[in-house]
Design a protein around this nucleic acid. Structure first.
Length: 489
RNA sequence: CGGGGCGUAGCGCAGCCCGGUAGCGCAUCUGCUUUGGGAGCAGAGGGUCGCAGGUUCAAAUCCUGUCGCCCCGACCA
């Protein structure tokens, strides 16, 4: 069983690749660092989108779409922003191909007057547009989200976790006051926290980034950080308070109710297909993918079993009715009646694909008015009554959802340590990994030194600090509360 | 950019050292038997061996060059 998947203990990174492949989520494309997202993977993304989109709309946002191409000159307008993204931009220089001996070549006569940048993020083009949208305080706030793809020319890539092109959503809001913008930033962080924990069943720590880890062009970057099974942290989402940096860069002003002209306050926030990678590494096991029911494309699968035409007729009818009844109850169900595969093969396949619940129905069950019910997360099987099955499924799906969260939460706790000195800090990182709380003197020099020596970065300054003031483990200077360190993806 | 690996059938690989009719597993197609944890048997289809040169009677194999991808690090969501 599941012999195609390398065990986590043996090679975690190979295990991850094996799960992605065997669950048919995605595959490498011919282009370095890019992926083909297959139907199973895309269905997950669609479910994430659907839920997040609703949450954005419930908090007053509307969707819009801005172009993928950005004039090169836009990137130079916000100094820190360029600095951050300059090294990883795809640049369009030509517009035409011509036939040649080799097939096709770039037509040198089609060189663009101004090169275009494929968006690595859309602050620039959006703030250039907002200048035209905003004149008065009555035009504010602007609460826009867009679902899009972006490109960052990364050196090192991993399916879902870091690809050169990825899908995401980016919210871009404009406000009349600093307070309102900060409130928005924090509100969206809370949306992300709630989505991660309540839907992905992935516990996260909320916090703010240090200056060196901050988004290029932000005044403050809030984040959710999750802990993966191998002890490495994953930045799962960010919400940025941009201050007036982009308003200044793109000259976006408004006349306030007091008659004075003021610069607009901004936020931006995003999560990406990286969440899929985080979800895989949070729940899955050596048998393959494990999915939280709330996001699983298929929540329940029915596998019929028969030996001859008589049995087939009886089992099929039983399954069809079951299917209709469950579907009517709003559960995402599929009936796997494919005849080219045997039940055993289907069991294994649905297991590796992470379907939370499996119902097997054979002649025995039909005559006893029962079904066999199997949970993906625990691999437990039971024979249960056909009557009242829908209610049972609903309860079980919620149970699995909360059990997955509990298990991940417990694991994260177990993987969270506190280091009282630098020696202990290094020892924890090397032997156990995970999150490590430690005191830090709030200087970039110390942060840099720790990173260089241990490869651990400050994941965040937690919004809900644990413990009391202390002394920096490196310099012995004052530290108001410990910050969260980890090696990360 | 450094280190490692790899390009041979849809997928995964062997063959290369030592040149001589291109193979294996899975998948696919046909038939029969099977079906409660990845079925069996019999038969069949499918490949310009990444690309370009060179050596040779003869190149997947040797030589030169070149392109690309993956993995491990430095950069990052």
């Amino acid at each position: 069983m599941a012999k195609k998947i390398t065990s986590r203990n043996k090679d975690y990174s190979q295990w991850y690749l094996d799960v992605v492949r065997e669950a048919q989520l995605a595959s490498h494309s011919p282009v370095r660092g890019c992926m083909v997202i297959k139907p199973n993977g895309y269905a997950l993304w669609e479910n994430m989108q659907k839920q997040l989109d609703q949450m954005f709309k419930d908090t007053g946002h509307k969707n819009a779409y801005f172009p993928m191409f950005i004039p090169k000159s836009f990137l130079s307008k916000e100094a820190k922003h360029v600095e951050g993204f300059a090294k990883e931009c795809a640049v369009i220089t030509h517009s035409r191909l011509v036939s040649s001996e080799n097939g096709v070549d770039v037509d040198p006569t089609s060189k663009l007057e101004e090169e275009l940048i494929v968006r690595p993020t859309s602050e620039t083009i959006i703030w250039d547009t907002y200048r035209d949208w905003i004149q008065s305080y009555r035009d504010l706030p602007i609460l826009i989200n867009q679902w899009a793809n972006v490109v960052r020319w990364e050196m090192r890539t991993r399916l879902f976790l870091r690809t050169m092109e990825f899908l995401w959503q980016e919210g871009h809001t404009a406000h009349a006051t600093r307070e309102e913008a900060i409130e928005e930033t924090e509100k969206m962080l809370e949306v992300y926290r709630s989505f991660a924990e309540d839907y992905m069943a992935m516990p996260v720590v909320t916090g703010v980034k240090t200056e060196s880890e901050r988004f290029a062009g932000a005044v403050e970057t809030y984040c959710i950080e999750a802990m993966m099974q191998d002890g490495k942290a994953l930045q799962a989402g960010t919400s940025h308070f941009l201050g007036q940096n982009f308003a200044k860069a793109f000259d976006v002003r408004f006349q306030d109710s007091d008659g004075k002209e003021k610069l607009v306050w901004a936020t931006s926030w995003g999560v990406s297909t990286r969440l899929i990678g985080g979800m895989i590494m949070t729940h899955s096991d050596d048998n393959g993918l494990v999915l939280p029911p709330r996001l699983a494309p298929t929540q329940v699968v029915i596998v019929p079993i028969w030996r001859n035409d008589d049995e087939k007729a009886a089992v099929s009818e039983y399954c069809d009715r079951l299917y209709e009844e469950i579907k009517k109850a709003g559960i995402r169900i599929s009936l796997d009646a494919r005849e080219q595969y045997k039940p055993g093969w289907k069991f294994a396949q649905h297991e590796v694909e992470g379907t939370p619940l499996r119902i097997a129905v054979g002649p025995r069950d039909v005559s006893n008015n029962k079904v066999e019910l199997a949970r993906r997360d625990t691999l437990e099987k039971e024979i249960t009554d056909r009557d009242g099955l829908v209610e049972k499924l609903n309860v079980l799906l919620e149970t699995i959802q909360s059990d997955l969260f509990k298990a991940a939460n417990q694991r994260t706790k177990d993987q969270t340590s506190t280091a009282s000195d630098y020696r202990e800090f290094q020892e924890i990182l090397d032997k156990k990994g995970g999150f490590v709380y430690a005191h830090w003197d709030r200087t970039s020099e110390t942060e840099e030194k720790i990173k260089a020596e241990t490869k651990a970065t400050i994941r965040c300054l937690p919004l809900e600090p644990v413990e009391q003031p202390g002394k920096c483990m490196i310099t012995g200077k004052d530290s108001p509360y410990p910050v969260l360190f980890a090696r990360s993806y």
